[in-house]
Simulated scan of single mutants.
Amino acid sequence: MSSFDFGPMPDKEGFFGQYGGQIIPPELKAIMDEINTAYEEIRQTPDFQEELQMLLTDFVGRPSPIYFARRLSDKIGGARIFLKREDLNHTGAHKINHCLGEALLAKFMGKTKVIAETGAGQHGVALATACALVGIPCEIHMGQVDIEKEHPNVTKMKILGCTLIPVTRGTATLKDAVDSAFEAYLKDPVNYIYAIGSVVGPHPFPKIVRDFQSVIGREARQQFMEKEGKLPDYITACVGGGSNAMGLFTEFLNDESVTIVGVEPSGKGLDTPYHSATMTKGTQGEIHGFKCYVLQDSNGEPLPVHSIASGLDYPGVGPQHCHLKDLDRVQYDVASDQECLDAFMMLSRVEGIIPALESAHAVAWAIRKAATLGPDQTILVNLSGRGYKDADYVSEKLGL
């Protein structure tokens, strides 16, 4: 039995402890409550469950394997590092897990368009893929800075048939893309559905995305037990909004022997404005319709943020992460841009695996931690995405 007492996550009002909820106009609250009711009803139906499971198996290629990174572990010395290979999923990342669920939900609800934001483009590609599969029009909002940085994913989204909306306001990155997409959704929330890209936003989105992503942890727990005969000592994942992390963490929350670590971007340094370390440097606030830790100014306005990884440069974070931090169940640490690049190159050249820059933050933490532990210790990293989208950018940055 676990000694942890988390309470309901979320409660009936959509709160994880004091975080989450619905900070939205009354008319939109009615729409969100309708989505919540429909989700709870539809997801229990055999038709929905069978179609989703079939697609996860035959379309996505689940279960994704767990791989022992032997050469990396030997090079570092210390703990053995294992990778949950979400990078091997169709579309190259964990995002397809919840995008298929959201697209199917939209179909079962009779919605006529799916609207979303994307940062690094992985959510955009996955959602465009899922919408093409179920036959629903898809509109993706993406910051102009990220469009230029993540050109391969932009091309894929266009090929898949989505309408791409460039966002040039503000910093022209993820936060601004969320603003733009939500405004488009509000034009017709009855017929459109907003397919948010992480465990953020007003209730019920943090719950819905977590539920669809939790397949990662369910698989990983069983696979690791079969492979090692015990649970990992540490599990870790990068955290921006926090969907891949929550997907892994959820199944292990009651396992007291497992230390859980989320890794945020410290960018160019926590003593500079150029980071996205919300859990480390943020304070309690509100953003995009929910309560969470926020990197904000004295007026409560979100600050500009930075990360070398486009999928992590968000000034807020999922409400369940905030609750788990306050309960001391999950630890939150950081990795810098340089550590991320170093881990990106090391994993590529030692194991032949090119990780997404987002995932490389978790790899960087694992490399740092493994060196302090003995060979009887194990670290499981959620390798949330592949780095093909980042290869040109990294090559140019490093002069390769």
Score class of each variant (00 low, 15 high):
residue 166 P to S: 01
residue 203 H to S: 12
residue 161 G to H: 09
residue 175 K to T: 01
residue 187 K to P: 02
residue 147 I to G: 05
residue 137 P to Q: 07
residue 204 P to R: 10
residue 188 D to L: 01
residue 203 H to K: 11
residue 159 I to E: 14
residue 167 V to W: 11
residue 203 H to E: 11
residue 188 D to T: 01
residue 154 V to Q: 01
residue 182 F to V: 08
residue 167 V to Y: 11
residue 123 H to C: 03
residue 170 G to T: 00
residue 145 V to M: 15
residue 162 C to A: 14
residue 189 P to W: 11
residue 128 A to Q: 11
residue 136 I to C: 05
residue 195 A to V: 09
residue 135 G to N: 05
residue 157 M to N: 09
residue 165 I to N: 09
residue 128 A to M: 09
residue 197 G to P: 10
residue 203 H to Y: 15
residue 164 L to Y: 11
residue 118 T to A: 09
residue 197 G to K: 09
residue 142 M to L: 07
residue 167 V to C: 08
residue 189 P to K: 07
residue 130 A to S: 13
residue 193 I to T: 13
residue 142 M to G: 10
residue 150 E to R: 03
residue 177 A to P: 05
residue 193 I to V: 10
residue 134 V to E: 06
residue 138 C to S: 07
residue 177 A to D: 04
residue 136 I to F: 04
residue 160 L to Y: 15
residue 140 I to L: 10
residue 192 Y to S: 10
residue 159 I to M: 15
residue 152 P to F: 08
residue 193 I to G: 00
residue 158 K to D: 14
residue 149 K to S: 05
residue 199 V to I: 12
residue 172 A to T: 05
residue 177 A to R: 03
residue 176 D to H: 09
residue 161 G to L: 09
residue 130 A to Y: 10
residue 178 V to Y: 07
residue 189 P to I: 02
residue 168 T to A: 11
residue 118 T to Q: 08
residue 141 H to I: 02
residue 123 H to E: 06
